[in-house]
Structures are given as structure tokens and as C-alpha cells.
Design a protein around this nucleic acid. Sequence first.
RNA 1: GCUGAUGUAGCUCAGCGGUAGAGCAGCGCACUCGUAAUGCGCAGGUCGUGGGUUCAAAUCCCACCAUCAGCUCCA
Length: 645
Amino acid sequence: MKGDRQVQELIPVILKDGTIHHVPQGSTLGDVAAGLSRRLAKEAVVARVNGDLKDLASQVRPEDKVEFLTFEDEDGRTVYRHTSAHILAQAVKRLFPEAKLTIGPAIEEGFYYDFDSPEAFTTEDLARVEEEIKKIIKADYPVVRQEVTHEEAIEFFNKQDEPYKVKLIEELPPEAQVTLYSQGEFTDLCLGPHLPRTGMVGVVKLLSVAGAYWRGSEKNKMLQRIYGISFPKQKDLDEYLKRIEEAKRRDHRKLGQELDLFGIADEGPGFPFFYPKGMIIRTELENFWRDVHRRWGYKEIKSPIILNRSLWERSGHWDHYKENMYFLKIDEEDYAVKPMNCPGAILYYKTRLHSYRELPLRLAELGLVHRHERSGVLHGLLRVRCFTQDDAHIFMLPEQITDEIINVINLIDYFYRTFGFTYRVELSTKPENAMGSDEIWELATSSLVKALEKKGIPYQVNEGDGAFYGPKIDFHLQDSLGRNWQCGTIQLDFVMPENFDLTYIGEDGSRHRPVMIHRVAFGSIERFLGILTEHYAGAFPAWLAPVQVKVISVASRHVPYVLDVARQLEERGIRVEVDDENERVGYKIRQGELEKVPYLLVIGDQEVDSRTVRVRKRGEGDTGPARLDEFIRKLQQEIEQKLCI
RNA sequence: GCUGAUGUAGCUCAGCGGUAGAGCAGCGCACUCGUAAUGCGCAGGUCGUGGGUUCAAAUCCCACCAUCAGCUCCA
């Protein structure tokens, strides 16, 4: 009567929605899922039990609060991909038994596994590994968790000749329980949890192989890292690969060349060139910037690129930023190329006495700075060695801090909205190499928090990520592909005013110390243009487009009218080009579309006769005939309002 | 900086020990044409740079330069 007794011993578990479900004692989480729905039976990858993630193979206890996760849940996806990483490691060990296992976590997009292998893996190797992965998935090995003692674990991995695993275990406290996960012949040290079976993984795609240091430190040995991604269905993988393709298609380095906007010569690694068309976009961005700053009460200055060593010693850059700076000698004296604009702005501030009545004093500067970046990190316009910061330094009374920060937040918000970006805010606090006392940092940080809270903006805190002179608020904007870019930043600074002995004359007639804000909106004009290029996929809105209208002749007899139309557009301030080549219309239209010109005007007999133009809108095709002045009026409005259409 | 891959005409790429090739772009000629590539012809390269091996190097070896991917995700 053993069976009867089991049936009677039901235990209660609490489900996600609060309902109580009774299951036989000794049930696993997998059993519970299977009893709830067919969908869960198939798709549950892991369970959250009383807040902790647990393998589906583990048993439930009475009163457990249980929630089942699938690939759709972030944590479920992480487990799914972590198991994928184990499958990758198993496949690699089969094909390359001499490769040593290290670590293999799931990451934001996919997973990786690092191996110490005598031979570097090639792309062909990856294809073979992928085949082996398919076999492992097909074999559908159960993934079995096992708890062993510290000693047993070390002995096991010593026997397996896996020195990195032994090292990892040795770093754990000796009394700790160590968990092992096995699937088929493969066993890995792992905290888990994992999928119950290898067959639950749908498709795995290995993406790339690259070097990576053991524990991320350059002092350690370089390992071979294989990156991969996995999905339940081929369709999901295809979509992911399509998204990668789309990002490649939008790569600003590629578009910058195709559209003739900018480029980088071998002779100047990290020092970009702007070509005439890129220069137009850049100038439009700067015009917009000047216009906004005028309206927000800023004055503009320009400080020199090269300044004497003594200045950089006083500012702290000599001690805190030296390895990123370029130096030169002039008349036997040491000079540095500026990596930041703040000391220049401070020198201007110090050219005369300031009254409390003129604060806040907002000094803006499009300042060209140079910073030494390691050769391996350069990347088009996004990571360069010289760039133009759309900088500003605000000198103010301590009681103006919160209002000023809110003012800057409003300005940055206005900037990003113009380009159709949404954004996220982060607050960074005191770093290791900071200048200034804890009290000052405390005060500065709480001022930033106060401004954010007053604006009701949600933010994330990054401990220890601030600048050496003060805490900061960073703006991470999100582009049309959902990627994040750090651009704007607001940094509060009590240190520089102290170092440079900055003062203002207060109401009481005596000298007081002002507070400083450093801030950028674009961040770097060059980088922002790179981001915009990818965001718009090269199809810039009319206000930024290097050529706004291209006028195309059908046959050579139409050229005089084409030139007349172009002249009228030009007179109304529109950037226009004429294509009067002896080519077919189809050819010229194709050129115009490839150049991503917002409007093409096609002119043939009909247009000449009726003195009209035929409008073709970028990406939409022929939109029919129009009167020229009507077209110009609409386009001017589109440009004026900076519409993204 | 480190690991790996790459570097051939303005662009995209083929050639991988026997002395440089295509398509597009450019130039010329013909066609005068209605919404994403008309046809024919011409011209264009010290094969990233510098060494070496060889009768012979774009091709093999070494060094350097540049580019690309990665080097934060921690059993």
C-alpha cells in the first residue's frame, strides 16, 4: 500500500499568483510545472523558489513560493544561455581535448566560454564545434547537479587536468559546498542553475572567437573566447542575425565613406577628417547648438589648444590624467595639448573680478581636445584621439546649484528630443583617485540627487564612476536600433574653484568661493555625428542633409528650366544639386536615392510646359506634381522645425 | 598595449611561387530617354611599408604601419 500513502501525502506550494497548489511529496519543480500546464511542461527552463533560482530537477518543499520562468523571462534566458555555454564547452572538449576550461557565463546578448588552448581557434573550427553542439542537443543528455566537498572537487578537477577549475575552487572558502553539473561525459564546476536537459536548447550559433585575458586582467594569460548565442527557435535566431546585419548596414564608418561625409587616414589614426558634405552636417549641428545656448543664457568662448604645464599641474590633470595627455616643448618649456576645456574657462573667469549679481555665469565652448587612447580601442568617430566637446562651465553660488542643474537637464532634454532620441540617466559617485574631501563629495552628490528628484527623473547609481574632481549625471541615449550611447554629462565641481582660488564678491562685499558645473550635451560633436549617422541609417532629416534637393532633367532640352528651378531653390536658402547628365532618368533617380537626398525633383516636358516640378520623396517614390513655391514653402517649414520625417 | 584576422585600381573583391584581373565609379563616343543601373570603348595598380628566401614573390618568412573583432559580464 506504499502507493496509496504517497498519494495522500500532498504538500502545498504557493504559485506566482498566490494560489495554493497541492502536489505529492517528493515532486520536483519540473513535476509541478508539468502539472500546471502543457506549455509550462515544455517551456519552463528554471524556477524561482522563495526568491532563488532553482533547477527544475530539485524537489519542492511545503509552503515553497514557486514561479516558473521561460526563455521569455530575463533570468530564464540567462539560464538557457548558461547551459548553452556548457554545451559549447562540452563540444570543444570533444574536438580539442587539450583545451582547458575556464569560465563561461551568459551575457547580455548570448554567452561565451573562455578556453586556454595551445592553438587559436579558427572560423572553420567554429563550424565544426557547431556541428558537435547539434549532436549534444540531439542526444538530449540530462543535466545533473551534484554537491561535493571542497576537497572532492579539487581532487576531481585535478584528475581531469583542469587547472583553472582547481584555481577557482581554491579561491572558495574551504568549508563551502561545491556544485558540479554533468551532461553526458562532461562535468563542469558551476553554481547553476541549469536547464534540465541539453535537448531543451533549440539552436546555437557561434558568432566569433577573440582573445580575452584570464579574469579580465592584462597581467594574466590571454585565453581564447568563443562567443555564441542561442534561441528556442530558428526563426528567433534569424531575426537576431538580421538585426546584426542591419547594424552592420548602418555602420557609420561605412556610411561615412559611401556618403562622402568623413573618414580617417592611415596617417592620422584616431584623428578624423570631415569632408565637405560631413562638414555641412557638422555646421548645422553647431548652428543649432549655438542657437539653443543663446536661448539658455550662455556666452561663448574659445580657449587655446596648447597651454603651459603649470596650468595642468594646478588643475590636477598632471597628476590624474597624464597618461591620456600629449605633451610638447616650446622654447624649453613644457606644454600640454588640452584633454579638457575647463582650465581654459577658468583662466577666462580669472581675468577679472566677478560680482554675485552676474552669477550664474554660463560659459560655453566648442573645444577641441586631444586624448591619448590605446591603439586597439579606436573606432571610427565613436572612439577617437581628438574631438570637439560641446562644453560649458557654469560658475555659480552654492544656493543656485539645484536650479542650475535642472536648467542643464532641460537643455539636454531639448537637444535629444530634437533628434528623436529617448534616454536613461545614471549618477556616478566618488572614484578611487578623487580629489577633495568626503564632505565636499557628499554635498556635491546630494545636490545632484536633489535636482534629479525635483525633476522626477528615474536614475541608476554607478558607485565610484565619477570624475576625479566631482560626481556626475550621465545621459545614455537610445538610438533607433535600441542601442545605448553615453553622450551628455553634468559634473559638479567644488575642487577646481579651490585649486584655482576662484572667487566672487558677495552681497557682503567680501570674497566667496563659487561652485562649478562642467557639462556637455552632444558629448563630442564627432561622436554624436557618428551616432546620428547610424540612428538615421545615413538618411538625415532635411535640416541636416548635406544636399536637401536634387533637380533631375529627363532630357537635355529640359536643362535650362532645371537650372532655373535650382537657382530659385538656392535663393531661398536650400542646399540644392543639379543632375543634368546625359543619362536615363532611372539612373539619376537611383543615384539620388543612394545618396539619400530627401527630395528629388524630376523635370521633363510636362513640368517645363506647366512650370511645375514633380516631387519624389526619399524612400517613398513619386509623390506627384507640385508648384515650386508651394514645394519650397513646405520644405522650408520642414527644415525650420527640424522635422524627422 | 595584448590576442586573432585582414591590407591588391577611387570603392567592393578575385588571384595565393612564373611577372596583375573583374564589377562599380572616372573619362570618351553614341542614344535625348518619365521614376532605383542604356550600349560601346579608353584609362587606371612601386599588390600597406621595409627587409629576407628564391632563377623568379602580390603569393613564402621576418619586422613595422594601419584596419577589423575582442580584451567590463566572473564557478
